[in-house]
Simulated scan of single mutants.
Amino acid sequence: MMIEENATEAADLREETAEASPELAEHDRTNALEAELAEAKKAALYAHAEAQNVRRRAEKEAADARAYAATSFARDLLSVADNLERGLATIPAELRADDKFKALVTGLEATGRELESVFQRHGIKKIVAMGEKLDPNFHQAMLEMPSDKEPGTVVQEMQAGYVIKDRLLRPALVAVAKAG
Score class of each variant (00 low, 15 high):
residue 120 Q to F: 07
residue 109 E to L: 01
residue 29 R to W: 09
residue 151 P to G: 01
residue 146 P to Y: 08
residue 2 M to L: 07
residue 7 A to F: 05
residue 101 F to K: 02
residue 74 A to M: 03
residue 83 N to A: 08
residue 114 E to L: 10
residue 98 D to R: 03
residue 126 K to M: 13
residue 134 L to A: 12
residue 81 A to H: 14
residue 127 I to T: 04
residue 16 E to Y: 04
residue 72 S to W: 05
residue 135 D to T: 03
residue 143 L to G: 07
residue 111 T to Q: 05
residue 139 H to P: 01
residue 19 E to W: 06
residue 19 E to C: 05
residue 40 A to C: 00
residue 117 S to D: 11
residue 155 V to N: 02
residue 104 L to N: 06
residue 26 E to A: 12
residue 117 S to Q: 10
residue 137 N to A: 15
residue 179 A to T: 12
residue 40 A to Y: 05
residue 163 V to Y: 00
residue 18 A to R: 08
residue 111 T to H: 08
residue 117 S to A: 12
residue 159 Q to D: 07
residue 16 E to Q: 14
residue 13 L to Y: 00
residue 127 I to L: 04
residue 153 T to P: 03
residue 112 G to T: 10
residue 82 D to R: 08
residue 51 A to I: 03
residue 64 D to K: 09
residue 24 L to E: 04
residue 103 A to M: 14
residue 37 L to Y: 00
residue 127 I to N: 03
residue 101 F to Q: 00
residue 133 K to Y: 07
residue 130 M to D: 04
residue 12 D to V: 10
residue 122 H to D: 00
residue 111 T to I: 13
residue 109 E to N: 07
residue 131 G to S: 01
residue 159 Q to I: 00
residue 172 A to K: 08
residue 149 K to E: 09
residue 84 L to Q: 14
residue 164 I to V: 11
residue 129 A to E: 07
residue 165 K to M: 05
residue 132 E to F: 02
residue 152 G to D: 02
residue 22 P to N: 06
residue 56 R to V: 15
residue 125 K to Q: 15
residue 169 L to Y: 02
residue 102 K to S: 02
residue 157 E to P: 05
residue 162 Y to F: 06
residue 73 F to G: 09
residue 56 R to Y: 13
residue 32 A to I: 03
residue 175 A to G: 13
residue 117 S to Y: 15
residue 137 N to V: 12
residue 173 L to I: 09
residue 57 R to E: 11
residue 47 A to D: 08
residue 58 A to S: 13
residue 44 A to M: 08
residue 139 H to R: 00
residue 60 K to T: 14
residue 73 F to D: 05
residue 120 Q to Y: 07
residue 104 L to R: 06
residue 178 K to M: 02
residue 127 I to R: 06
residue 115 L to C: 01
residue 5 E to Q: 14
residue 26 E to M: 05
residue 157 E to L: 10
residue 139 H to V: 06
residue 49 A to H: 07
residue 88 L to I: 13
residue 99 D to Q: 14
residue 135 D to P: 03
residue 64 D to T: 07
residue 104 L to F: 09
residue 165 K to E: 15
residue 96 R to Q: 14
residue 171 P to D: 05
residue 43 A to N: 04
residue 173 L to T: 06
residue 73 F to P: 03
residue 4 E to D: 15
residue 23 E to T: 04
residue 14 R to Q: 10
residue 127 I to V: 13
residue 67 A to H: 09
residue 51 A to R: 14
residue 73 F to V: 11
residue 82 D to G: 04
residue 19 E to L: 11
residue 156 Q to K: 12
